[in-house]
């Protein structure tokens, strides 16, 4: 099982009602520890692809497996165990009044042993232990993003989905994120990062998935 590709998409088709399909018969396989930058113009389906892997959209056709779990399957808990996501407006998803509880939330919902320790570890890895007792909505934009990232990794997902994670991060915070992505990949986490920032893509990714005029291409 551990040697199997973390992400498998076979013949995936997707589009929104009344609009042209964003992609058809897309097949992808990503091994553990692969970091893929997802690039391309606005509106081509980059975020939608992440949402499909996160089980937030249903494919029109085709099959997805995330560490053996079908995101479109009936048990959200199974997917939550193997995937973590930081969406474009990540700070709209905060649910708790303290950073430490927010970061521990997924682990707690999954009944993992010692969620508080997992949260502390995630905060430590991003160098934001000092924020643990604060309210997530009292933080600045950069700190909020780091808290959202800590929340996505604390339970140890096999797939990390990042949508414009570098957006608006200053130099120090950006370096923290780059270091964390590299460390996660070294531990075998597969990472898909949608970005418009070429320098950031080059700093993190070993592969690029480009949504171009002539279709979707992996390089």
């Amino acid at each position: 099982m551990t040697r199997e590709d973390t992400v498998i998409a076979e013949d995936l088709s997707f589009g929104y009602p009344g609009q042209a399909r964003l992609f058809e018969r897309l097949s992808l396989r990503f091994a553990p520890g692969t970091v893929v930058a997802v690039l391309g113009p606005n509106g081509r389906g980059k975020s939608s692809l992440l949402r499909l892997f996160a089980g937030l959209e249903q494919p029109l056709a085709g099959r997805i497996s995330v560490a053996g779990v079908d995101p479109a399957g009936p048990e959200a808990r199974d997917l939550a165990r193997v995937a973590g996501m930081v969406a474009q407006s990540s700070d709209r998803h905060f649910l708790r009044t303290k950073v430490q509880d927010e970061v521990a939330l997924t682990a707690r919902n999954l009944y993992l042993p010692d969620p508080a320790a997992l949260a502390a570890q995630a905060l430590e890895r991003l160098g934001i232990t000092g924020l643990a007792a604060q309210h997530p909505l009292d933080l600045d934009a950069g700190e909020k993003r780091l808290v959202a990232l800590a929340s996505a990794i604390a339970h140890g997902p096999r797939l990390l989905l990042l949508d414009e994670i570098q957006r608006g991060l200053d130099r120090i915070n950006r370096q923290k994120v780059i270091r964390l992505i590299r460390a996660e990949a070294a531990q075998g986490t597969t990472i898909l990062a949608v970005t418009h920032d070429r320098d950031f893509a080059e700093a993190i990714a070993g592969a690029e998935l480009v949504f171009g005029d002539d279709g979707i291409r992996l390089t």
């Binding site: 113009p41 606005n42 418009h196």
Partner: peptide
Amino acid sequence: EPMTDLDAES
């Protein structure tokens, strides 16, 4: 931060 999510063309 007006341009963060814009593709290069836009």
